[in-house]
Amino acid sequence: MTLTELSYNVRKSFPFVIIFFLVFMILFYSVKLLLLYSGLNQPAQPVYTDTKFGKIKTPVISGSKTSSTTNYILDTIEGQPTTATLSANIYLVPPITTQLNYREKVYLIAKMVGFNTETSKYTLSNRTAVFSDDKQRVNIDVANFNFDYEYSYAKDPLLFTNTQIPSNKDIEEKARDFLKSVGRYPDELSTGKVNIVYHNYNATANTLFVTKNPAQANVVEVDFYRPDIDGFPVVSPEYFTSQNYVIMVFKQSTFKVIKAQVSFFEKSDDQVGVYPLRNGDAAFADLKAGNGYVISGENKPTVTIKKMFLGYHDLDSYQNYLEPVYIFLGENDFVAYVPAVEKDWLEE
């Protein structure tokens, strides 16, 4: 076949190729539209729920304030409120009972934080054992052994001379070892996330200031968080820091714990309900209506929300359930939570 004949045959068949392509595209999009139409006309599948606990209490979020005094503008990547899921697990937090053999454990904790337990005795108020002297104080819950410890570092100015900041690995290791030594390092915290916060202690103001530059720090904090639950992150009552932490001062070959706290409440993995959740539009409407809890941020007349997602609210005091909340993040470190469970299933 000559080039002339080839060119003639190509020109002759070209209209048929165009017609075939157009027919194929018409059929392809006709099928897609048919499938889309049939999907839209199918009845919505019911959301699985197991509301075994009946109505549950609205989560108590300590230290928060109402969201009612602010106008909120949504400016997220999605461009609209997001709904992660229509139902979620609700975990029972078993009630706490005082253990009869608590004396041995509270003395162990006191000894490991620096008390001379041969001479130091505790006072018992309700279910809190308190060790205290002129240098330090520790409060221990005799039911679950949650504790908070503070060293009177303002009375020890030499503590902050010749400090060093070791590697993140060493910092985390020392914090973990400390919690293990006092016998209060829950399994969930051991498998969860950690976050390091750097501080600079100002003796004149007697205040720890957060700094992002380790070179300016003389104090370091390790925050411990639960791991994700059902694929959703766990947020603390203060969001940026955890209620489970160890704060330390490092020297060349030693370190001193100056503050520490574990306020952790074990959830049951056997007693779990499944509750319907409000959608993203309803959650954002609740925020605007003043039914949200502002965790952080300046009191401004208008706040722009940059991110919205679903997570579980961790507890810093005992509550009956571990349940999800919608988290709203905005400019200037604004953070707010809105309960995620449908209102019909929440007690007033």
Rank of each mutant, 00 (worst) to 15 (best):
T2C: 11
T2Q: 08
Y8E: 15
V10L: 13
I18W: 08
I18D: 10
I19G: 10
I19S: 14
M25G: 11
S30Q: 09
L34F: 08
S38G: 00
P46N: 00
P46Y: 00
P46C: 01
G54D: 07
I56A: 05
K57Y: 07
V60T: 07
V60C: 00
I61N: 04
T66R: 03
S67Q: 07
T69W: 02
D75H: 07
I77Q: 09
T83L: 01
T83N: 01
A84P: 00
L86M: 06
S87F: 02
Y91K: 06
L92T: 04
V93L: 06
P95W: 03
P95T: 14
V106G: 02
V106M: 04
I109M: 06
V113N: 02
V113Q: 04
G114K: 02
T117P: 00
K121D: 13
Y122R: 03
Y122M: 02
L124K: 12
N126I: 11
V130A: 05
V130Q: 03
F131T: 09
S132I: 14
V138G: 00
V138L: 00
F145K: 00
N146I: 05
S152D: 13
D156H: 10
Q164V: 15
S167W: 10
S167I: 14
S167R: 14
S167C: 14
I171A: 09
E172I: 15
K174L: 06
K180M: 15
G183D: 11
R184C: 11
R184S: 11
D187I: 12
E188M: 10
G192L: 09
G192R: 04
N195K: 15
V197Q: 06
N202R: 02
T211K: 02
A215F: 12
Q216H: 09
V219D: 06
D223Q: 05
Y225M: 08
R226V: 00
R226S: 07
D230V: 00
D230C: 01
D230N: 08
P233A: 08
P233C: 06
P233F: 03
V235I: 12
F240K: 13
M248T: 14
V249K: 04
Q252T: 14
S253P: 08
F255T: 10
K256I: 10
F265P: 03
E266A: 13
D270R: 11
D270H: 12
V274D: 11
Y275R: 09
L277R: 05
R278M: 13
G280A: 08
A282Q: 15
F284Y: 13
F284S: 13
D286Y: 07
D286G: 09
G290H: 08
I295T: 02
G297D: 05
P301G: 04
V303W: 01
L310D: 05
L310P: 03
Y312D: 06
Y312V: 01
D316C: 06
Q319C: 07
Y321T: 12
G330E: 03
E331K: 06
A336K: 03
V341T: 11
D344N: 11
W345N: 11
W345R: 08
E347A: 04
